[in-house]
Simulated assay, not measured.
Amino acid sequence: MTDSTEGPYRSQTMSGDASIVVDLQEYRKAKDPLPVTFHRRELDLILRIYGRMVGEGEWRDYAIDHLKDRAVFSIFKRSGELPLYRVEKNPKLAAKQGAYSVINTDGRILKRGHELQQVLKVFDKVLKLVDK
């Protein structure tokens, strides 16, 4: 049990020890860290490729998830299905294998790296010679 003796920011326990005043914003940041998000330039790169593929009729929908440990841009053929691809940003892997990765439906990593622009090149199509 605690009895408030010195105003709303101090409390005294039954043993007589005064508790420490903690800033609520600092406490919330420590308890619930902000989720990982894509920055504007990262979204520009992703949406540029997404727009091109929508124009070609290959993709139709997307979803963005901001989780505690990673940010995920999911790409769908149809909105009711599993995502065809997931572009993930995981800052914990930045020093090791690279923070960015492209993952297909099966969960296989198609490409991983430190720079998003290089990782997104997995969606570039190879030019083919067409005979007439």
Rank of each mutant, 00 (worst) to 15 (best):
M1N: 07
T2Q: 11
T2R: 13
D3V: 05
D3Q: 13
S4M: 04
T5G: 04
G7V: 09
G7F: 03
P8A: 09
Y9N: 11
Y9K: 11
Y9L: 12
Q12P: 00
Q12K: 14
T13K: 13
M14H: 03
S15G: 06
S15Y: 00
G16H: 05
G16S: 02
D17A: 07
A18T: 06
A18W: 12
V22A: 10
D23K: 05
Q25C: 00
Q25E: 15
Q25T: 08
Y27W: 12
Y27M: 14
K29E: 15
K29G: 04
A30G: 10
K31V: 10
D32W: 11
D32N: 13
L34Q: 15
L34K: 12
P35F: 08
T37H: 06
T37V: 13
F38K: 09
F38A: 13
R41G: 02
L43K: 12
D44V: 09
D44A: 10
L45Y: 04
L45H: 03
I49E: 14
Y50T: 02
Y50N: 09
G51D: 14
R52F: 03
M53D: 08
G55I: 10
G57M: 12
D61H: 12
Y62G: 05
A63R: 15
A63I: 07
L67H: 07
K68Y: 06
D69L: 08
D69N: 12
R70Y: 02
R70M: 13
R70F: 01
A71L: 08
V72L: 09
V72F: 04
V72T: 12
S74N: 07
S74V: 05
E81M: 11
E81K: 07
L82P: 03
P83K: 06
Y85C: 03
Y85E: 14
Y85T: 04
V87A: 02
V87P: 00
E88T: 07
E88M: 08
K89L: 13
P91I: 03
P91K: 06
K92M: 05
K92I: 06
L93P: 00
L93E: 07
A95S: 15
A95C: 01
A95V: 02
K96G: 06
Q97V: 10
Q97H: 11
S101I: 04
D106N: 08
D106C: 00
G107D: 11
R108F: 04
H114F: 08
H114E: 15
L116P: 00
L116W: 01
Q117W: 03
Q117D: 14
Q118C: 04
Q118P: 03
K121V: 01
K121F: 01
F123I: 01
D124S: 10
K125C: 02
V126E: 15
V126R: 09
V126W: 00
V126C: 00
L127A: 14
L127D: 12
K128A: 15
V130H: 12
K132F: 06
K132V: 05
